[in-house]
Amino acid sequence: MYKLYLKRLMDLVLSLLALPIWLFILIIIGPIIYFQDKGTIFYNAPRLGKDGKVFKMYKFRSMKVNAPDLRNQDGSTFNAEDDPRLTKIGGFIRKTSIDETPQLLNIIRGDMSIIGPRPDLPEHIELYEDDEARKLEIRPGVTGYNQAYFRNTIPWKERIKNDIYYIDHLTWWMDIKIFMKTIVSVLKRDDVFIEQITENKNGEMTNVK
């Protein structure tokens, strides 16, 4: 019942209640992003949604205009505190996760959920192995099991395993625990940035800060 109906209802109600707060954030952050380099306020990133449907995920733009797309060895997005592609305000909104708040609009549209697997890039669907495509069984989330407990400290393939674990154990109580853990993680700013992901002698991908 919760997974099929109540989860979506709660997403919609909570998102509509939070919308006025987000509009206040937009009024403050939006002009700062624009006037730093006269670029767009939002970064609209194509992502894989439920059942493999591609949608535009909204974020506040944290990088300079025409910044190059850098990836780690496992194909995940490069994300470092001293990344030269970040604008001055970009570093701040990354650390505080404010850059993710426009995804409130994705939740209202039905593209995303508050809690769920973080969405992958569209081309990642070709890299799924065995049952990894199961992470597309539900709507992706603004935060999720990985973000709450590991943030950016584990490789992409391990995150997929955790996503499937979440799907198999999805309950109202689990979502509450993930939500509360996420708040603590964001306030403490733990493991926001990683330098790179490298391959160890066993052929396993590991993060290097």
Results as ranks from 00 to 15, higher is better:
Pro119Trp: 00
Pro119Leu: 07
Trp173Gln: 09
Val142Asp: 03
Thr87Trp: 05
Leu16Val: 14
Phe24Cys: 15
Pro84Ala: 10
Leu136Val: 01
Asp51Cys: 10
Glu129Ile: 14
Gly144Pro: 00
Ile29Tyr: 01
Pro84Asp: 13
Lys53Leu: 09
Lys53Met: 09
Lys209Ala: 15
Tyr34Pro: 05
Met205Lys: 09
Pro155Ala: 11
Asp111Trp: 02
Asn146His: 00
Ile29Asp: 05
Tyr128Gly: 06
Phe55Asn: 07
Gly30Trp: 09
Glu137Thr: 11
Leu23Ala: 10
Thr206Ala: 05
Met10Thr: 12
Val184Cys: 07
His124Arg: 11
Asp175Ala: 03
Phe60His: 01
Thr206Gln: 13
Ile107Trp: 08
Asp82Trp: 06
Gln147Glu: 06
Leu9Lys: 15
Val65Lys: 12
Arg189Gln: 14
Ser76Arg: 08
Asp168Ser: 03
Ser15Met: 06
Thr40Gln: 12
Phe179Ile: 08
Asp82Glu: 13
Lys161Val: 14
Leu187Glu: 00
Phe150Tyr: 13
Arg139Gln: 11
Glu195Thr: 15
Pro122Phe: 02
Asp82Phe: 04
Leu14Gln: 04
Tyr34Ser: 12
Tyr34Val: 15
Thr153Lys: 11
Tyr149Gly: 08
Phe92Tyr: 12
Gln36Phe: 11
Asp131His: 11
Gly49Cys: 04
Lys95Leu: 06
Gly30Ala: 10
Ile176Tyr: 02
Asn106Phe: 02
Leu9Asp: 13
Pro31Cys: 06
Trp172Lys: 13
Lys157Arg: 11
Asp99Trp: 05
Asp99Pro: 01
Val208Glu: 13
Lys88Ser: 10
Ile138Leu: 03
Gln196Gly: 09
Gly91Phe: 07
Leu170Gln: 11
Asp168Leu: 00
Pro31His: 00
Glu158Ala: 04
Glu132Leu: 04
Asn200Val: 14
Glu129Arg: 12
Lys3Tyr: 08
Ile183Pro: 05
Pro140Asn: 08
Lys209Tyr: 15
Leu9Tyr: 11
Ile176Ala: 00
Thr198Asn: 07
Pro140Thr: 09
Phe42Trp: 06
Glu81Ile: 14
Pro20Gln: 05
Asp37Thr: 02
Pro20Val: 02
Glu204Trp: 03
Trp156Glu: 05
Ala148Gln: 01
Trp22Phe: 13
Arg94Tyr: 01
Ile115Gln: 08
Ser97Glu: 01
Lys188Glu: 11
Thr153Cys: 03
Asp83Val: 06
Met174Gln: 09
Thr40Ala: 14
Met180Glu: 07
Phe35Ile: 15
Lys201Phe: 15
Leu16Met: 12
Asn202Gln: 15
Gly90Ser: 01
Phe35Pro: 00
Asp175Trp: 01
Tyr128Gln: 01
Glu195Arg: 08
Leu23Asn: 07
Gln36Asp: 12
Asn44Ala: 11
Ile21Leu: 13
Ser97Thr: 09
Asn200Ile: 12
Val184Gln: 12
Lys181Val: 03
Ile29Gly: 04
Arg159Val: 05
Gly30Cys: 07
Phe42Tyr: 08
Thr206Ser: 08
Ile125Gly: 04
Phe150Glu: 00
Lys95Ser: 07
Gly52Leu: 05
Glu195Gly: 13
Ile114Ala: 08
Ala67Asn: 09
Leu26Arg: 10
Ile183Thr: 02
Leu187Arg: 00
Pro117Gly: 08
Asp120Arg: 09
Tyr34Gln: 12
Val208Ser: 12
Leu70Lys: 12
Ile98Glu: 01
Asp51Trp: 14
Glu199Phe: 02
Arg94Ile: 03
Arg151Ser: 07
Asp190Ile: 00
Asn207Leu: 13
